[in-house]
Design a protein around this nucleic acid. Sequence first.
DNA 1: ACCTCTGCTGATAACTAATATCGTTTAGTT
DNA 2: AACTAAACGATATTAGTTATCAGCAGAGGT
Lengths: 149, 149
Amino acid sequence: MRNKVENKADQIYELLKQNDFKVTPQRKVILNLFFDKIGEHLSAEEVYNLLQENHPEIGLATVYRTLELYAELDVLQKMSFDDSKNRYELNNNDIHHHHHLICTGCGKVSEFSDDLLEALEEQITTKTKFKIMDHKVKFYGKCESCYNK
Amino acid sequence: MRNKVENKADQIYELLKQNDFKVTPQRKVILNLFFDKIGEHLSAEEVYNLLQENHPEIGLATVYRTLELYAELDVLQKMSFDDSKNRYELNNNDIHHHHHLICTGCGKVSEFSDDLLEALEEQITTKTKFKIMDHKVKFYGKCESCYNK
DNA sequence: ACCTCTGCTGATAACTAATATCGTTTAGTT
DNA sequence: AACTAAACGATATTAGTTATCAGCAGAGGT
């Protein structure tokens, strides 16, 4: 019997195949990196640097391409925290609606999970003709340690 | 007696002075442009192009600097709709909490105003130590015409 | 096992938005 | 009117990302 991560990884390999993309070693390695780094919001360069240790043969262009591909397949969630670079994290469906709390003091990004936005989406649906598929919410403020100094 | 826009503009000139910034012709022109384009989300280059007609002497660097300055003073709100460029709109305090509805079909950005997020902010405040100052919400989906085809 | 064919890769050039630099100009003050 | 720090325009530079292209590789057919 296989563990959860392997199972989940296999599902994603299957998803690649279903969409006529090949399951390459590079795509496997990059996906596994994100399984190792759950909760982190990695930029393309950070991914590339992390790969240097065990997979220095993987090029930066491949990193960009792979992240973009996974984002389109909704395997990764693409986001930006106003530092003019895109960041990615595993789109764990279990915690689909988690919002980011961005500290304007130290820049740290924490998370908050909930489904309260459903009410807001419902209101928009009834008041407008807009059909909502997804949302992104960012809260700006001060984390505990920045607030206390 | 002066009209509302002039009054509002004067308040902003005053705000500049209070923060030891000079009230230059360039800053006046760019601010007035945003009063003329309420509801639009302009990029730096779009502002620059709009200025070409009547004020071709204003340089692109000045546009970038001025937009950034106004954003720091909360006169403009800085945002991005995943097209890898920053956009700005007048931060009208009357409609402070308006969210953006981004159509994934045609890219059009519309708006929805509400204060329902207060409830969510309150929940975060009670459950975490994070002190929220501001938030940005983006909803993704299909606008009426894209949905119907 | 081998061939083929298409998609993928790595290296790197090109692009784009934004920022930094620098000599000149100007707003606000004296 | 003179002064001075701030702001300006032109342009070089940077940073993140995307495009290009020759070579490679892995699935399917023979």
